[in-house]
Structures are given as C-alpha cells and as structure tokens.
Design a binder for these strands. Structure first.
Lengths: 150, 150
DNA sequence: TTTAGAATTAGAATGATTCTAATTCAGAAA
DNA sequence: TTTCTGAATTAGAATCATTCTAATTCTAAA
C-alpha cells in the first residue's frame, strides 16, 4: 500500500472559478455562470422555467433540472435570492441590495423597492425577547402606476 | 308564457347566515362555519391538510376539496388570510389585526408579531408615484427564542 | 491514466392545489 | 307540497412546480 498522500483540499485553478460571498462559495461552472448572468441581465423577476427558456438560447443542451440545480446552488451561496410573491412558481432575483418587492396584481409586473435610508426594520415589530432574525421577505401587492392610470 | 315573476335577490333567512366584512360576503354554510371556527381556535398557522384533519373530527364526511373550497371563499370574503411563508403548503390565519409573521426555521413554529403603534409601512419604501398598495405580506425568518436557548 | 467526487441529465416521483363532472342541498316559486 | 334553480359539496382526475433517482459525463488531482 502506498503511503497516504498528503491530500490538500481542492483549490481553484485553471478554468475552475469560485465566487465567495458571505462565507459561502460555489464553483461557477459554465451552466451556473450562464444562469447567473441571464438572471443578472433580467429586469423582471423570472421563474425557473423563464430562466430555462432564456438560457436554452445560449446552451441548447441544458435541462430544467439543471436550472433548478444551479438556482439552488446560487441561492445557497447567496449570489441570488429566491422570491415568494404568491402561490405557484418561485421567482429569482440577482439584486442583492436590501429591498422589497412590489407585485402588480393587474399586470403581474414585479418592481424592486428600496427602503428609505433611515429604515430599521427590526424595531417595528414586537418579536419575543431572544428571537433571532436571519432574513425578512416583504411582498407588497397592489396596482402599479401604469395599470392604475388606465 | 306566465308573467315574469318579480324575483327578488335571495335574502338570508332561517339557518342561512351571512357575514359581511369589507364589502364582501359569504354564506356561512355548516362546512364553512366549521372550517372558520377550527381556524379561529388554532393558535398555530395550519395548512389546508391540517385543517382538513381537524375538521374531520367534527364532520367526518368533509373532503379535502371542500376544505380548499371553503378556505377560498373565506379568504375572498376577508374573514381569513392566506399566508405564504415558504414554498410548499399555504398556511391560513384568522387573525385580522394588522400583523406580520415570524417563522422559526428550526422548529417551524409561526408567531404573529404586531407592529409598533407608530409604524406606517407605506412611507418606508420608495414606490413609484401612482402605485396603489392593497396589501403587504411580511415574513420574518429566523430562530425563535426557545430554539435559540438550546 | 486513473480515480474520486461533483455536475449534469432525462425521466420518474412527489406534493399541493385546482379542475371536472356528478350529486346534494337550501330556499323560492308554482 | 312539489318543483326548480343555482350554489355547495364530493371523489377522483388532472395539473403544475418541484424534487428525487440513477446513470452518465466531466474536472482536476494523484
């Protein structure tokens, strides 16, 4: 039996490329990179199938399962966010700035809304002492200005 | 052809009972009443199948489809609220006071949290002029005090 | 070149919800 | 009372989004 090799943890080299955000990291494989780039280029808040359609134009062989897989890894690494606005498909968002989502119930459009500079969400709700908050998700539903104008 | 009878719109009489809230109304049929009462008596935020199980103790013949149907009507009438905390099953809530939901990611418990008296949500997000807000849904995720103590 | 593990895939499986078509029921009209 | 109409209810099928599975491919290190 050969001596136990002094195996190092795999390090990124060559084509392999990692991005680290908030301590987590992902290997940015070609598919993951494309899903990420397509999402970053999207101003709407696409669903997994929306992204599947868009990425297929660039990588015809990609499968929906891979898109879901990529989204899961990217979400886990904190590179993108999963958004739950209503029942049905989840939506995804590459805007990492703190923001909330406005959802127009008439046309379905989703708009990012950013909080006022002095907004401190934690102090507005009377959570029991000892509660730890890891994230908040605010969905505002209504009618967007374009629809309201009609 | 007989003369057109002067048909009046159906009015609630006898056992039939309506509740009107915010302009909407529902006939409170026995099943709807039971689903509503069971939800009001629940301190957790039950899912449709949770409610189905609980209501079946009182009305063994009820079907899951009817529970969904009742929940839809009660929600439409504004008597209860549908809550989306995570992917998967919707939860329901009979607390009509303005409040947000805290979701413990460790034990799954959901706690109602009420806003501070001076909280005016509308002014904290820079929504485009002309936007009309009909409702807001805030989910706060984290660890409840009991789980945090462990 | 071999190996080990991760990524990817197609398709099956799952879970929640919604739909469908038939039946039952309540109250109004005859 | 009996009939009628529309709503409520039902079981089961259908749908939809997602997750799982098992096989295959790929990457980078040994």
């Amino acid at each position: 039996m050969p001596p136990t090799p002094n195996r190092q943890p795999a390090k990124p080299t060559g084509l392999e490329c990692r991005m680290a955000v908030l301590g987590a990291d992902v290997r940015l494989t070609p598919h993951r990179r494309e899903v990420f780039e397509v999402l970053q280029a999207s101003t709407d808040h696409p669903t997994a199938t929306d992204l599947f359609t868009r990425v297929k134009d660039r990588s015809p062989g990609i499968s929906l399962a891979t898109v879901y897989n990529c989204l899961e890894h990217l979400t886990g690494a904190g590179l993108i966010k999963q958004v739950h606005l209503e029942r049905g498909q989840s939506r995804y968002c590459a805007n990492l700035h703190e923001h909330v989502h406005f959802h127009c119930e008439t046309c379905g459009k989703v708009i990012d809304a950013h909080p006022a500079a002095d907004f401190d969400p934690a102090k507005f709700w009377n959570l029991p002492a000892g509660t730890r908050v890891s994230r908040m998700e605010l969905a505002i539903h209504g009618t967007c200005s374009a629809c309201a104008a009609r």
